[in-house]
């Protein structure tokens, strides 16, 4: 069965949890910028966590369904509806054949992840259905979804069918995950970081400035990275380093002193000094930053970064167990 993107929106792409294991060939992991949000949304509709969904940037999407599906979305502070019925983030809902789901104008944040029961069934490239927009493969022909385009959906799982039946009367599930899972966007967020290995290639003043000042998100930010305007971070040398691996979360300082916070579609290697690394737990908040937003940074230890990440994973396991119990 297919669903039709009546309006594709500003930038909507098929994403799953991305491709691991290909960095040695220069392939970045890609995938949903908030993998946790996509996993939660998938669990809510009865999918397996890595199923492919839609990453919606700034809304503008209207999608029409040709059969009954369970859907759920997580992300920024968007206005979303099934027909004229409002659908808040984190609630599973039944859409019936012929109905539209639309998502518009976020008040805070800029991205949302929509899971559809059965998942989006585009061809798998290198183990993933994610769209690599930079290299131009995966997802819908390696590019963003276009107006009027049809998306092939997978079969509803038994769990999704059970869920659809329980939602037949009420349409929208009353239960939802914790608020910061379904809506991670924050106004003027503080992102936690651990110190980078090349911090000594920047002046001591640069590290102080980084952790004390507010930075503005530049309009030239994208899925590769969030570019930041604000006080210039001085390096001790204009010379770049021998290229080595970088990762989502890495904060690089190019010669112009304007830091770049790398996201999933970043290059696999880089030669700019790595001043800091935003912790994995906080990357979903970074994924919601939009041009002109203010963002601050605060240092934590590596052990703290691991602690919060492992705690959330345990909570997600419990949540998964809860859903399984609920659908028995």
């Amino acid at each position: 069965m297919k669903a039709t993107a009546i309006r594709a929106g500003f930038l909507t792409s098929v994403q799953d949890l991305g491709r691991a294991g290909l960095r040695e060939f220069g392939v970045s992991p890609g995938g949903a910028l908030d993998p946790h949000a996509l996993r939660v949304a998938n669990l809510l509709v009865g999918n397996k966590e890595p199923a492919a969904g839609l990453e919606i940037t700034f809304g503008g999407l209207r999608i029409r369904f040709a059969d009954d599906r369970v859907i759920a979305w997580c992300g920024g502070d968007f206005e979303a509806c099934i027909g004229s019925m409002r659908l808040a983030s984190g609630h599973a809902a039944l859409v019936q054949s012929g109905e539209d789901f639309s998502i518009e104008s976020p008040a805070i944040g800029c991205r949302a992840w929509l899971a559809i029961s059965g998942g989006i069934d585009v061809p798998v490239f290198l183990g993933s259905r994610a769209t690599d927009l930079k290299a131009g493969f995966g997802g819908m022909n390696g590019r963003a979804i276009r107006d009027g385009e049809q998306l092939l959906l997978g079969e509803n799982s038994e769990r999704s069918k059970t869920l659809a039946e329980t939602l037949r009367t009420g349409r929208i599930a009353s239960w939802k995950p914790p608020h910061n899972w379904s809506n991670p966007a924050q106004p003027e967020p503080v992102l936690r970081f651990i110190r980078g290995s090349d911090a000594d290639h920047c002046t001591a003043e640069a590290m102080k400035t980084f952790s004390r000042s507010g930075f503005f998100v530049s309009p030239d930010s994208d899925r590769m990275g969030v570019r930041l305007d604000g006080p210039r971070l001085e390096r001790t040398s204009e010379k770049d380093l021998l290229s080595e691996a970088v990762a989502p979360g890495t904060v690089q300082v190019p010669p112009n002193g304007r830091p770049i916070l790398l996201l999933n579609d970043c290059q696999t290697i880089g030669g700019y000094p790595k001043l800091a690394h935003v912790i994995t737990f906080d990357l979903p908040i970074a994924a919601q930053l939009r041009p002109a937003d203010t963002v601050r940074f605060s240092e934590v230890t590596l052990l703290e970064a691991h602690r919060v990440l492992c705690e959330r994973e345990r909570d997600l396991q419990q949540f998964r167990g809860g859903i399984e119990w609920h659908l028995k």
């Binding site: 691991a20 294991g21 960095r23 040695e24 080595e244 691996a245 990762a247 290697i269 691991h306 990440l309």
Partner: peptide, 17 residues
């Protein structure tokens, strides 16, 4: 999860969980 060699380094990616 994976190993990424470059010039003088190898990056080792892992999942703490």
């Amino acid at each position: 999860i994976e190993l990424a060699p470059a010039y003088t380094t190898i990056a080792l990616f892992y999942d703490p969980v």
